[in-house]
Design a protein around this nucleic acid. Structure first.
Lengths: 191, 191
DNA sequence: ACCTGAACACCGTTCAAGT
DNA sequence: ACCTGAACACCGTTCAAGT
């Protein structure tokens, strides 16, 4: 379980993100939390944004593993379970969620590859749904993009408070995703 | 057409946002663009984030006006036109879009009120759709939240590049919104 | 190969002072 | 009532120097 220094810096950044949001992730605080100076990260990452990209890439890979059902032997999560996992992750770790799907300028090849891997796992779940008739026919990547858009938007609007104040009776992100699945089932039955 | 200094500061911030993203919106740059010192904004806003909230509030009000069809006499945009306007705005002004729907900490009553107004206009369009049968029955606020989630998510994922690289054949945010409307129409026909 | 301390440019914010 | 210039604390980044 020997963790590399690079990993411990990514850990520190993710922890600060959870505690105080992106504003709390300063190189000084990251260095402190990892027990090194504020310049040490520059030996492992070209940049602060390169460190943040490493955090995001790791989140995407962990997300893809959850999508795949790793850890639960024989599990093949369907599209709905995958979407639910996505929304739960976003609401539980809003800082990581916003960072991961935030605006990335410049080339971040590692991040692009991780995005691609997570998307593939998701499209596979949609293909299984089409095979069993719970998803409409058509380009599975396109249906996956629709599902992801709704789940992402519902989670993002919830986190930002734009779905209304967090009171009793507010429409939750998980309910919206459920509604979409219900409409898709209806559309699959009547093509 | 006499513009208050407060308005010209909001203008300057919005312009910098369009040009260089949120990172370009510094109080020094805002002051420069408005022809005042970097401390002048503090006479009109308590804070930098208060200035940004004013930018976001103005965007929401302009968005609500576009949703209402202001400027085109007699126009009553339907839900689809409203969603299209939303997506077009987000793709054309990604900086304003991300700011407006970003994470707002602390109380921003002006922003909350503007959000409420924009949402009301949108829910009205959904009610009209239900009356003419193109939208499923049910709580109009909930259907509006589903539409907004999809449009918001599709726009956000497009802006962040998480819907895939911007190449020929990529699925566009507007296409995803169209797909949702098609599924909703099918669901409305077969309740 | 990895780390440190000092330094630099930049930022948000405050404050005494001006009109 | 509104604005300014100087100052302060904080940040990302660089660099010479250490092991």
């Amino acid at each position: 379980m020997a963790e590399s220094r690079r990993d411990s810096l990514v850990d520190a950044a993710a922890g600060l993100l959870d505690q105080g949001g992106l504003a709390a992730v300063t190189l000084r605080a990251v260095g402190d939390a990892a027990g090194v100076s504020r310049n040490a990260p520059y030996r492992h990452f070209t940049d602060k944004s390169d460190l943040l990209a490493a955090v995001a890439s790791r989140e995407l890979d962990q997300l893809a593993a959850a999508f795949r059902g790793d850890g639960r032997p024989g599990a093949k999560p369907d599209a709905r379970e995958v979407m639910d996992a996505y929304v739960q992750w976003a609401l539980r770790y809003p800082g990581r969620f916003r960072l991961t799907f935030g605006a990335w300028e410049g080339d971040q090849p590692e991040l692009g590859a991780a995005t691609y891997r997570a998307r593939e796992v998701f499209v596979d779940a949609v293909r299984r749904g089409q095979a069993e008739g719970s998803m409409p026919k058509g380009n599975p990547a396109r249906i996956a993009a629709l599902l992801l858009s709704t789940a992402h938007g519902a989670a993002d609007l919830t986190v930002s408070g734009h779905l209304g104040p967090p009171v009793e009776g507010r429409i939750g992100a998980d309910e919206l995703v459920d509604d979409l699945f219900a409409h898709l089932r209806a559309a699959a039955r009547h093509p």
